[in-house]
Simulated assay, not measured.
Amino acid sequence: MSKTAINTDQAPAAIGTYSQAIKAGNTVYLSGQIPLDPQTMELVAGDFEAQTVRVFENLKAVVEASGGSFADIVKLNIFLTDLAHFAKVNEVMGRYFAQPYPARAAIGVASLPRGAQVEMDGILVLD
């Protein structure tokens, strides 16, 4: 099976040795996105909600560059430096997803790149 790198300038450029996403067959594996502004490559200003919205917008850009939509996401992983933000993640996620929601994990971590409070990755399957 061949694999194809997915890249878009509408999401932050990779800050390491990885692709924004890899398409293998009809499955797309999304690399983790943190709340970097794609133009400045700096963390977005604002509170946790602003960071969460930016992460979803970054994921959306990569998903769309792959030819998909959030409706195609089957698995979403959310990494939080403070699990007290779990309810806010649910609230913001509700703006981007409709039922059936993807399978999901929310994982508490000690730290994230660039001091981010939230990071997400996922898997989508294209028809």
Rank of each mutant, 00 (worst) to 15 (best):
M1N: 11
M1C: 11
N7V: 11
T8C: 08
D9L: 15
Q10F: 12
Q10I: 03
Q10Y: 09
A11F: 02
A13C: 05
A14T: 15
A14V: 13
G16L: 04
Y18H: 14
Q20E: 07
K23A: 15
G25M: 12
T27A: 13
Y29P: 04
S31Q: 08
G32D: 06
G32K: 04
I34M: 01
P35C: 05
P35K: 10
P35L: 08
P38N: 08
P38V: 08
E42A: 14
E42K: 15
G46H: 04
G46V: 00
D47M: 01
F48R: 02
A50E: 06
F56L: 11
F56Y: 14
F56S: 00
N58A: 02
L59E: 02
K60Y: 03
V63F: 09
V63N: 10
A65K: 13
A65C: 11
G68T: 12
S69K: 09
F70W: 07
D72Q: 12
D72E: 10
V74N: 07
V74P: 05
K75D: 07
K75M: 07
L76G: 05
L80V: 01
L80N: 00
L80W: 00
L80K: 02
H85V: 01
A87R: 03
V89M: 11
N90M: 15
E91C: 04
M93E: 03
M93H: 02
F97V: 08
A98R: 12
Q99A: 15
Q99T: 14
P100H: 10
Y101K: 09
A105L: 10
A105E: 14
A106M: 15
G108K: 06
V109A: 06
R114W: 00
R114M: 05
G115H: 11
A116S: 08
A116K: 00
A116M: 01
M120P: 03
M120S: 05
D121Q: 08
V125R: 13
L126G: 04
